[in-house]
Amino acid sequence: MSHEPTYAPEEGGATGRRSRIVDLLTTYGERAGNALVYSSAYLAAIAMTEVAIAMVLLSLPPNPAPVVVGLVTFAVYTNDRVADADTDAVSDPDRSAFVRRHRGTLYLLASVAYGLAVAISVLGGPVALAVTLLPGAFWVAYAADWVPNLAPRLRRLKEVLVVNSLVVALAWATTVTALPVAFTDAAVTPATAVVFAYFLLRSFVDTEIPNVGDVEADRATDVATLPVAFGVPATRRALYCVDLFTVGLVGVAASTGVLRAGPAVALGVGVAYSLVVTGLLGRADDDAVALASECEYLVVAAALVGPLLIA
């Protein structure tokens, strides 16, 4: 019986183990990534970043508003995806399959998240509570199809050019700006209006960019969006205009002292990033461009925090 060491199999074994570890990490990493993207958890993270930016811009003390907005975003978008899982099967089969597979868990998580958001918002007082309850009211009404029964005109807003994106942007801007203000009992100042306007413009761009990838579906359902009405090149130009309008708003706010220089520069970096992303509209993968557009706030956050870390 030989007792000589047999290096080759051990080496092979080590390689095999490494390979298995890599496989496992790849598999679980991919699953975690899918869960993050498909469940809308990443949107919650971005929404939290938006509120944090608003708090920095308004010089508000730390408060639970980002957590509440993150929870509400997760709850509303997850519920939306669960509700639309069947209709999304054609436009986004992978996401639809993921949502359908975990439908029960996702709905439970969304419910708990919204419950937590409502509970925490009570600490912010009645205004914070009202702002938090509003998406929940829409959740219940939308699920029951009460909106078309009670307000046909409201339902049709979704089909009206620009107005549809403006309504979504308005909801985002209100939540992101009002909630931290409500939590801290801060006064409404010109800076508040500028921050609100900034998020309104940015959210408008964020809403129109994904519409480029949904042209066929929107046309089929008579939903008027910029790319449906004017085509992709015209949409690109229109969004350039909104970006430049944002630059003007930030510039005026900074020059009049409403915004401090540092945050204003960070917002400028974000808009510059947005101009690049908008330039890719129709020239790169639509989903990738939409995801990149939603990450604008991470760029702004990095621009805000980066100098502090370097200093």
């Binding site: 419910s111 419950g115 959740w139 219940v140």
Partner: peptide, 17 residues
């Protein structure tokens, strides 16, 4: 009380489904 709100809201949404 906030725990009550979390549990109650979750129960309401699960029932609504």
């Amino acid at each position: 009380m906030l725990l009550t709100v979390v549990v109650g809201t979750t129960a309401a949404l699960l029932a609504w489904r």
